[in-house]
Structures are given as structure tokens and as C-alpha cells.
């Protein structure tokens, strides 16, 4: 009684649950928006404190990276991402989490071959393709005479 491969795939597709995409999108939208709102509040607070616009943006990023790092180290960040998904992965806090978590994970293998070698395992591809796409965009804009 061998099962047919194609038939089996169809059976699996029928039973396999779909990820709750709509719910995930709504929660990600709300949390992502909330993070941006907090950033905006902090930004205006810093501006009111007398910081320049450029410095305020930098400080906001630094503060968010710090918060994310602390929440990662205390084991809370991954629990929040489980609920809010992209709302916490896409902002700079997600980038910080993707650097801090391998650093924590691999400190047991030493500072050079552990932390040093593994620090960019998650963030590395983002950095590489971020730089590559900005280069391509720059070349296109240059060709159009807009840069």
C-alpha cells in the first residue's frame, strides 16, 4: 500500500494549517506603528531639549538599540516577536536583536571564533544586500543624471 507522492502532497496541503496572515499583519502594523510613535515622541523631546535634528535622530536610534539589546538579553524580545512579528523585526530594534542574540549565543565558543565569527550570521546578509541594492540604485540614478 504505497502512497502516491502527488496524492500525498495534496493531502498535506489540505490539512496543513495556514499561518494567520491577516492577524499577523494587523499586530505587526499596530506594534510597528507604536514603535514609530515612541521614536517620534523621543525625537520631539530631544529637540525640545536643544539637540539638533541630526543628533536627535542618532540618539533615538541609539536608545532603541539599547532597549532592544536589554530586552534580548533578558529573554523578553523573542517572546514579543512571537506575537508582533514584523512589527518588531523591521524597525532598528529587530536589527539590534539580530546582532545581540548570536553574540549571546556564541560567547561560549570564545570572543574570536564565537562572538566575532558569528556576530553577523543573521545581520550579515541584510548588510550585504542592503549595500548592494543601494549601489545599484545609485548607478541607475547617476545614469539618469539625478545624482
Amino acid at each position: 500500500m504505497a502512497i502516491d507522492k502527488n496524492e500525498y502532497q495534496k493531502t498535506v496541503e489540505k490539512i496543513k494549517p495556514r499561518p494567520p496572515v491577516l492577524k499577523n499583519c494587523v499586530l505587526a502594523f499596530l506594534m510597528g506603528g507604536f514603535v514609530c510613535f515612541l521614536g517620534e515622541v523621543l525625537f520631539h523631546f530631544l529637540r525640545g531639549y536643544g539637540l539638533s535634528e541630526k543628533d536627535s535622530y542618532t540618539v533615538v536610534s541609539v536608545v532603541f538599540i539599547l532597549i532592544s539589546a536589554v530586552l534580548t538579553g533578558t529573554g523578553i524580545y523573542d517572546d514579543l516577536v512571537r506575537i508582533f512579528g514584523a512589527g518588531l523585526i523591521v524597525p532598528i530594534t529587530g536589527f539590534a536583536n539580530s546582532m545581540v542574540s548570536p553574540a549571546l549565543e556564541h560567547k561560549q565558543e570564545g570572543l574570536v571564533l564565537g562572538v566575532g565569527a558569528k556576530l553577523f550570521t543573521v545581520a550579515g546578509p541584510v548588510v550585504i544586500y542592503g549595500i548592494l541594492s543601494s549601489l545599484i540604485v545609485a548607478i541607475i540614478l547617476r545614469g539618469l543624471g539625478k545624482l
Binding site: R82, V100, L104
Partner: peptide, 17 residues
């Protein structure tokens, strides 16, 4: 988790399966 998937503290949203 660290061998097959992600660092344990990395935020990921897993599928229902």
C-alpha cells in the same frame, strides 16, 4: 535550536506546523 535553526533569543515568528 542553535545548531539547526536560530540563536535562541532571536525574534522569529514560527509557523503553526
Amino acid at each position: 535550536e542553535r545548531q539547526y535553526r536560530n540563536p535562541t533569543e532571536q525574534g522569529v515568528q514560527k509557523t503553526p506546523t
